[in-house]
Design a protein around this nucleic acid. Structure first.
Lengths: 186, 186
DNA sequence: CGATACATGTAACCGGTTACATGATTTT
DNA sequence: AAAATCATGTAACCGGTTACATGTATCG
């Protein structure tokens, strides 16, 4: 049986539903009211995504809490959904993710707690560190070669990118230390 | 007459063709061989984009240089295309761009040279600075409130984002200074 | 001659965006 | 009673991804 590829939004939904069963509306609020806003809000993306996940058997309706509010459909993760979530969290960190999928990487990190153990988080951060450092080195090399011929605004834009990745490199070092410390304390 | 909304890729193509007329293949290489890689490579996105821009009258085929190579179709910007490019570069900097469109903002900056003057670049950077600082402040506030209840990995992911935006804030300060210095030297 | 780089495209698929539609419940 | 918020959806559109198709020129 082949695993369907899930969109980032779908995986975000799986991660949030793992933390706590909730409705489509709650999910939307979870996106719009936190820095997760990156991953879209708008009913036109979330409800269809819920429908797909439901059809694939990764999430399921819970008995609705008919307290007073109308028709709230609460969804929860199925075992199959939990499996899909774990697979997504366990994926490797590729060069291309660092170049154009950093948001998704950070989403993965954010959703790891309570789903995978610290070893996975640690492995993830180590892999990320490696790829970020490689990419910084590559950018530096490109910059050294091209800077002379680059116009001012182009150079500034490139420096912005490099600064961002350097900040990531520093951050990931601290993050690894924190995870290690946290593991020892347990 | 209403202006069609152009995709980021389309605008990137307009910007590159403004620097120098070239073929679809050249554009692809321009993307894959530089940090512009963010904005897709793959023939399946570039050739259709070229087709659309051509149909809209924003770019046009140049007499082909039939030196020896086969069928290279060289495209250049039309006056209408230059107008569209300028409008894109002159757009304001919104909060939402900072939150989920930083790549496009940096692309805009990178392509400004030779198309719009330093005043526009300066205005852009000032607006960016304002929005980045506001967003950093907002994140800080959210972090202060939520940090206690956030799991480790979630907190780390959030810190990554904050570090990134702080780096942007520092960079934009330097960038503004450089543009000012550069303007004085001229 | 075979491999690699040059060069351009098409077609199916997928999913996000936008806008619209609907209706209940709570607040003013 | 009107307005705002809660809550769920649908449909058209657009464009990016993937994979495929095709053929030339150059180089070893």
């Amino acid at each position: 049986m082949k695993q369907k590829l899930l969109s980032t939004l779908s995986c975000a939904i799986l991660g949030l539903l793992h933390q706590k069963p909730m409705s489509g509306y709650d999910l939307r609020k979870g996106f719009t009211s936190t820095p997760l806003i990156h991953f879209s809000d708008s009913p036109g993306s979330i409800y269809p995504a819920i429908g797909r996940l439901s059809r694939q058997g990764l999430i399921a309706r819970t008995a609705r809490e008919d307290s007073s509010r109308r028709e709230r459909q609460i969804f929860r993760l199925t075992p199959k959904g939990r499996g899909a979530l774990k697979r997504w969290l366990n994926k490797g960190v590729m060069r291309i993710d660092v170049i154009s999928g950093m948001d998704e990487l950070m989403l993965r990190l954010a959703l790891m707690d309570g789903v995978v153990d610290r070893i996975v988080t640690n492995r993830f951060l180590k892999a990320l560190q490696k790829e970020v450092n490689l990419y910084v080195a590559e950018l530096r090399k490109y910059y050294a070669l091209a800077t002379a011929t680059m116009p001012l605004s182009g150079r500034l834009a490139m420096e912005s990118g490099m600064d961002g990745y350097r900040a990531q490199a520093r951050w990931v070092g601290r993050a690894i230390a924190e995870v290690k410390r946290n593991r020892r304390l347990k």
